[in-house]
Amino acid sequence: MLQYFLRRLAAIIPTVFFVTVIIFGLQQLLPGDAASVLAGENQDPEVIAYLQKKMHLDEPLPMRYAYWISGVFHGDLGESMRIQQPVLGLIKEKLPVTLQLAAMAMVIALLIGIPAGIVSAVGKDSAWDYLANVIALWGLSTPNFWLGILMILVFSVQLGWLPASGYVSPFEDLGANLAAMIMPAFVLGNAIAAVLMRHTRSAMLQVLNADYVRTARAKGLNERRVVLKHALRNALTPIITLGALEFGTLLSGAVLTEQVFSIPGFGKLIVDAVFNRDYAVVQGVVLFTSSVYILLNLLADLAYFVVNPRLRG
């Protein structure tokens, strides 16, 4: 397993390097001048010159990249020019919010998507199969922002059961926190559940027709044991990868959903940073989320190794 891990790690290192180059390069293509934006309406030339020097905007592009990547290696992602705070501190502040939202959305997606996919595959062409496919199609085709607005209208405005927006720390009031987060988590989890259902159904249909499944049934094993122990375990391989990728997508910031529900996570942070030309924040947040995405892929590969015995040979 150690050799497998080292091989995967060796493949990740150049990937991370190219990611840093792409993040930095694309950031420079944004229209406008960050120093002019931060200087305000007066556009004082001395202020602009000071900001350009402080942000190294008056130096060649390779030198600016060298300054930035050197700071990254030392744990310094820069400082927000707009609010004068370290980017790493902003990430630490917003991470728990987005992490909780992503975790709740993923739990909802797993609780809906995988059981629905199993039931759909086991009862292929039955009423349950058609119902599961209709629900999955609805989940895939429903825009998150529209579903969020609809849920606010029903559960907040008309019924008054849940708050329409805002965020409360779980350390302050756990009940209020869950009440504020359940709707955005369901909105995000709904779409992922549909994707998980389709992939689970497809994987289970392939596995249920395998020889070892027919052999297990021929031995007289209970159908539930055949499905859950023999079939599902071997069908989990593509689902693990999909789950890791979707969780990484959630962590990268569900921008529209966070905007609709006024959740102060990565989505709002990155949108504000782009509009204010806050280069350090944009680069820091995108680098962090990209690194998490790559790490989740690595963890998915390791989970492959555990679930699939053929990789150990």
Rank of each mutant, 00 (worst) to 15 (best):
Y65S: 05
Y67L: 05
W68Q: 06
I69Q: 06
S70T: 13
G71D: 01
G71Q: 01
F73D: 03
H74T: 09
H74Y: 05
G75A: 08
G75V: 10
G75P: 05
L77A: 08
L77K: 11
G78D: 00
S80I: 08
M81N: 07
M81S: 09
R82P: 01
R82A: 12
I83N: 12
Q84Y: 06
V87S: 01
L88N: 10
G89T: 10
I91P: 04
K92H: 03
E93D: 15
E93Y: 14
K94V: 12
L95I: 07
L95S: 08
L95D: 07
P96L: 15
V97P: 09
V97R: 02
V97K: 01
T98V: 13
Q100P: 08
Q100C: 09
A103R: 07
M106R: 10
M106P: 05
M106G: 08
V107R: 13
V107F: 15
A109L: 04
L110H: 03
L111F: 14
L111A: 15
I112P: 01
G113Y: 05
I114A: 06
P115R: 02
P115Y: 02
P115D: 03
I118S: 01
V122Q: 07
G123H: 12
G123Y: 14
S126A: 05
S126Y: 00
A127P: 04
W128K: 11
D129G: 10
D129W: 13
L131W: 11
A132I: 11
I135R: 08
I135Q: 08
W138N: 10
W138F: 11
G139C: 13
S141E: 00
S141L: 00
T142M: 11
N144V: 07
N144I: 05
W146A: 12
W146E: 04
L147C: 12
I149C: 01
L150R: 03
M151T: 03
I152V: 12
L153H: 05
V157W: 02
V157H: 02
Q158D: 10
G160S: 00
W161H: 00
G166V: 11
Y167P: 12
V168T: 15
V168E: 13
S169G: 04
E172D: 15
E172R: 09
E172Q: 14
E172K: 10
D173G: 06
L174C: 10
G175M: 10
A176I: 06
L178V: 15
A180Y: 13
A180T: 13
A180S: 15
A180V: 09
A180D: 07
M181A: 01
I182S: 02
M183N: 09
M183H: 11
